[in-house]
Structures are given as C-alpha cells and as structure tokens.
C-alpha cells in the first residue's frame, strides 16, 4: 500500500523536479540563445587573412605564437554592437598594452578602414575576411566575437557578444597571468 501511495506521488514529484529546473533557469539569468563555444581550451585555428592596411604583410598564424597572449577580434563597420565595444578595445590597447588582432568580417576593406580611421584603430594588426571562410574555422556565428589566445596558442576565452566591463576584467586577469 505504501509503495502504491508513492506511485501516486510520482507525477507530483516529476512536476516539482521540472519546475525546479525552470525556476533555476529563470533565476540564473541563463540565456537560452547562448550557443557556447567549442573553441575554448583548444589550439587556436589558422589565422590567415589579407591585411587591411596597405603595406603590411598578410595575417599569419605565427602572430598567435608570439609568446604573449593575443586578443583576436572579429568586427565589421556595419555592425552596431561593435561600436559599443570599440572604446573598450581602444582602452585595452592603449592602457593595458594588449596585442589585438582585428579581422573585418564580411566587410569591404575600404569601409572597414574608413570606420577605423574615424573611430580610432585598436588593432596591432588587422586583416579582413570578406567571404567568411576564415570565420567558419574559428567557429564564428556573427560579429562582434572575441577570442583570447594565451602564450601557448591555446584559446582561453571566446565571447559571442560585445565586450563589456565584465568580459574586460576576465581578459585582463588572464593577460596578466599569461605575461
């Protein structure tokens, strides 16, 4: 009889467990659209792209093996959220001396250049990926996305959103630890 009673409690128990998950999801502020990253913890992919700047050699994967952490930022001049993170990138370069490689994604080089000339250029080196082929290798879903590659060429951070103050401190902590 007791086991029978327990059987009748089973639906309620299932509901409570489910509701627990829902509550957890709602209260944790989980973003259902977040897709995660398969890149973190793996060696950085190839980084080969024509240079955005006249007279500079094309981007080369060797850039990521300089023995220092490097930030790789995919951006585009047509991308509004990129504008939001732009000042933070400038700050990272000028105040914190972080090496940043920029890649203009699906962006005509002249437009990307014009936009950087106007807003300030936070990049140590800059290239462009007009057809998005390089981006697939990086598991990119759109712009802006930012990767932190450590001194050993391993991806440590991957943000699929504009960098904000929280992301900034994560980057700085790892950069300081790595250099």
């Amino acid at each position: 009889m007791t086991s029978n009673r327990l059987l009748f409690l089973l639906p309620l128990a299932t509901l409570v467990v489910m509701a627990g998950f829902f509550g957890w999801s709602l209260l944790s502020g989980r973003d259902p659209a977040a897709i995660g990253s398969a890149m973190v913890g793996k060696p950085a992919p190839r980084l080969e792209a024509p240079s955005l700047r006249a007279g500079e050699p094309a981007l080369d994967t060797a850039l990521l093996k300089s023995g220092k952490p490097v930030l790789v930022n995919f951006f585009a001049s047509w991308c509004t959220p990129c504008l939001a993170e732009h000042p933070l990138l400038l700050r990272l370069k000028e105040r914190d001396g972080v090496a940043i490689v920029g890649v203009a994604w699906k962006n005509k080089p002249e437009e990307a250049r014009a936009s950087l000339a106007k807003l300030g250029d936070p990049f140590t080196r800059a290239g462009f990926d007009l057809d998005g082929k390089l981006a697939v290798d990086w598991g990119l879903s759109g712009v802006p996305e930012t990767y932190l590659i450590d001194a050993n060429g391993i991806v440590r951070l991957h943000f699929r959103a504009p960098i904000g103050p929280r992301e900034l401190s994560q980057i700085l902590a790892l950069v300081k630890a790595g250099s």
Binding site: F8, L9, P11, L15, A19
Partner: peptide, 21 residues
C-alpha cells in the same frame, strides 16, 4: 512573466497532482 506563469503552473498543476496523490 516567466516566473509568474511558473508559479501559476506550479499552483494549478501541483495543486491538482497533490490532490491526486
């Protein structure tokens, strides 16, 4: 709104299933 519906869901379904048990 999600929290409100969740509480409502718990109230209606949970109440029903508790009564059932």
């Amino acid at each position: 709104r999600g929290l409100f519906i969740l509480c409502f869901l718990l109230g209606v379904t949970g109440g029903g299933l508790a009564l059932y048990a």
